[in-house]
């Protein structure tokens, strides 16, 4: 929750789904990022889960991680905050695929 109490809040709260719906993603057929489930199951920090601005890393009930590449900003935060070398395999999407900004 907010660190600030009682401020004005007349701007509408958007759901995360609606937030991501404002972004133009041209989804390719190839997953440009993959995660290694076995390594992730042994990871205690799972920093990717909160740090990813697109919220693409979802913890599973068995302690692993499910990753959805489709709404990726291609920023690189996940592999840089990851504490386990090799857990995240990161490439750029194929040419023309992926995020397309218009007003950023």
């Amino acid at each position: 929750m907010s660190a600030y109490a009682g401020g004005m809040e007349r701007w509408s709260r958007v759901s995360f789904e609606d937030r991501m719906a404002t972004v133009d993603f041209r989804v390719g057929t190839r997953a440009h990022i993959t995660v290694d489930g076995d390594t992730c199951r042994g990871c205690t920090t799972k920093a990717c889960v909160t740090a990813c601005p697109a919220n693409l890393f979802v913890p599973t009930s068995d302690g692993g991680i499910v990753f959805n590449y489709e709404q990726c900003f291609e920023c690189g935060t996940c592999y840089l905050v990851c504490s386990n070398e090799g857990a995240i395999t990161w490439t750029y999407p194929d040419g023309g695929d992926g995020v397309v900004f218009h007003r950023s």
Binding site: W11, T77, F101
Partner: peptide
């Protein structure tokens, strides 16, 4: 920012 509607969300390193 009161009442202003989200048009595009973005992120970059």
């Amino acid at each position: 920012v009161d009442g202003a509607q989200l048009q595009e969300y973005s992120a970059h390193l």
